[in-house]
Design a protein around this nucleic acid. Structure first.
Length: 533
DNA sequence: TATTCGTTCGAAATCCTTCC
DNA sequence: GGAAGGATTTCGAACGAATA
């Protein structure tokens, strides 16, 4: 049977399309707005029509419809347990682009609580939240009725059953050609013996420049349409605005123009009012070819919104260009008759739907991110099944080793400290004291620094038995060519480390320690640790 | 300093009902 | 059937705080 998932606050299903590309079946998809559900239908997201659940997630009947759908799948399809719940609750209350947010946004933030409720009820093998950078630090009203951080609410309600790991990453570093800092929270059921959240995060990739992603698209003059693609056209705007933008170089905003070509508005008497607030530096601004694209927002249709102007044409980006910047494949359908749309017959359709499409793109999870995470989930769940059915368990990676040893991933306070430093490093050296600290921190460390040139880890304070077993484990493992693990006799006289991990916590971060010679203390490993090997 | 899954506002367009 | 008038939705542009 295919892998299954349920998506909550699914918008147009752009991120979910990545699940589909990995062969996942959608059991139920909940979204408030009907036009967005229609887009999902065009892409045949759900196997059954009843899987498209258009309704308010705060209403009990909406929850019930999701449970009914699961029950139907259990009966008809032999579903035992939903594999994934993928939730992307609305983020307006947390977005920093929304300066007019008020306290009532907390009500909307609390939609995340509906997702938590559903995850508790559905009990999937894995859950994934995707949201804006401030997600975990925002306040919600918890199931208990108390106001607390979303992070606290997630841990309070779900950490009993799930190992949880979260990171803020910028999707431009993960195969998406436009900037998009987002929080990813992944939880894996503690019933899974071989999977931890660390393994399911997207894989870091080199940045993709605007030139390399949309540079090859046909250039378009004012109001011109590409004859071969109805979604690639220069959206019309008033002709007088051409003077504002036609001479802009990449990265320049029309607000820096001389007075005669500054953006203006006419008042009731027909007098020009020149607009220039303190924060208008990215409005009426041209994008830059040799950088990744800017974050795609909901109002990509107008030049007065943020970073919407093409690097050299006098127009905003076309729908097709936006799709490319959000890694939405051309096979993704916005209507049930995409293939019949032509430049000649698309005007009416676009008149009615362009706004919706652009908003959907601006609120989407890039397909590539959904695809990457879904692919990793599938791989690990297949492995779980393989072992369960009697296949060999090679227990050959750090994540599993740490997982079995301690049963859960430690809280991430240590890594929050690293985040605070915000230093771009190419090489790091780490001293780790003791097998326990090694198993708890090194997997997270390697995951965190997977993109850098080299990670050198010196491990101290091992018993002879631990040392032999660790060497044997290392031999079997595939931990990446940038990771070097040594078991030296003692720290070199003038050795310096970027980080020392000792006594169950990271005590120093990026503190260079010269002459860090310490007595090697032999400790007795406890039976649990030994049983690992 | 640069950036951001946005909201608000007025105005225009569209929809809907009533009346002649 | 079509004009008038009101209700609702959509459109175009303006606009700033929080965060890193």
């Amino acid at each position: 049977m295919s892998r299954t998932y349920i998506s909550l606050f699914s918008c147009a299903g752009v991120g979910c399309y990545g699940f589909k590309m990995n062969g996942f079946e959608c059991v139920a998809s909940n979204e408030l707005l009907a036009p967005r559900i229609e887009v999902q239908k065009c892409n045949h997201k759900c196997k059954y029509e009843s899987g498209y659940i258009c309704g308010d997630a705060t209403k009990p009947e909406t929850h019930q419809r999701i449970y009914d759908e699961i029950a139907m799948w259990k009966e008809k399809e032999g579903l035992e347990q939903v594999d994934v719940v993928f939730a992307t609750p609305p983020c307006q209350g947390m977005s920093t682009a929304n300066y007019k947010k008020t306290d009532h946004e907390q009500i909307r933030n609390s939609l995340v609580v509906e997702a938590i409720k559903l995850i508790k009820g559905i009990h999937p093998k894995v859950f994934v939240f995707e949201n804006v950078r401030a997600f975990m630090k925002s306040i919600c009203t918890d199931l208990s009725g108390d106001d607390m951080l979303i992070k606290e609410s997630i841990y309070k309600n779900l950490s009993e059953d799930y190992n949880i790991y979260w990171k803020v990453i910028n999707f431009k570093d993960y195969g998406v050609p436009s900037s998009r800092p987002r929080t990813i929270v992944i939880g894996t059921s503690k019933e899974l013996r071989h999977t931890t959240p660390l393994q399911l995060f997207p894989t870091r990739q080199n940045e993709i420049l605007l030139r390399d992603s949309i540079g090859g698209f046909p250039r378009l003059a004012y109001c011109e349409k590409d004859k071969s693609d109805p979604f690639h056209f220069a959206r019309p705007f008033p002709e007088y605005m051409l003077d504002w933008i036609k001479d802009l170089k990449e990265g320049e905003t029309a607000f820096d123009n001389p007075d005669e070509t500054k953006p203006y508005q006419l008042d009731k008497d027909g007098n020009k009012i020149v607009n220039k607030g303190a924060y208008m530096g990215n409005k009426y601004r041209r994008l830059i070819w040799d950088r990744p694209g800017a974050c795609i927002a909901t109002r990509s249709d107008i030049m007065s919104s943020q970073d919407t102007i093409h690097p050299c044409d006098n127009r905003v980006l076309s729908i097709r260009e936006l799709m490319t910047l959000m890694t939405i494949p051309n096979s993704f359908q916005w209507t049930d008759h995409d293939s019949q749309l032509t430049v000649e017959n698309s005007d009416e359709y676009l008149r009615d739907n362009e706004g919706n499409i652009r908003r959907c793109i601006g609120e989407a999870v890039p397909t590539q991110i959904g695809k990457d995470i879904a692919g990793k989930i599938k791989q690990m769940l297949d492995y779980e099944d393989y072992v369960k059915c009697g296949g060999g368990d090679n227990a050959n990676n750090f994540y599993i080793a740490a997982h079995r040893c301690f049963g859960e991933i430690l809280p991430q306070d240590a890594f929050a400290e690293i985040d605070k430093k915000k230093e771009e490093v190419e090489n790091i050296s780490v001293k780790v004291v003791g097998i326990r600290d090694f198993l708890v921190f090194v997997p997270q460390l390697i995951s965190y620094y997977s993109h850098i040139n080299s990670i050198t880890i010196d491990v101290f304070s091992l018993t002879s038995e631990e040392e032999i077993n660790l060497l044997s484990l290392l031999e079997k493992m595939n931990i990446g060519s940038n990771v070097h693990i040594n078991i030296p006799e003692r720290a070199a006289e003038f050795e310096s480390y970027n980080m020392i991990v000792e006594n169950g916590k990271c005590r120093h971060f990026f503190v260079t320690i010269l002459g860090a010679k310490r007595p090697v203390k032999k400790t007795q490993a406890d039976p649990l640790q030994l049983s690992l090997f």
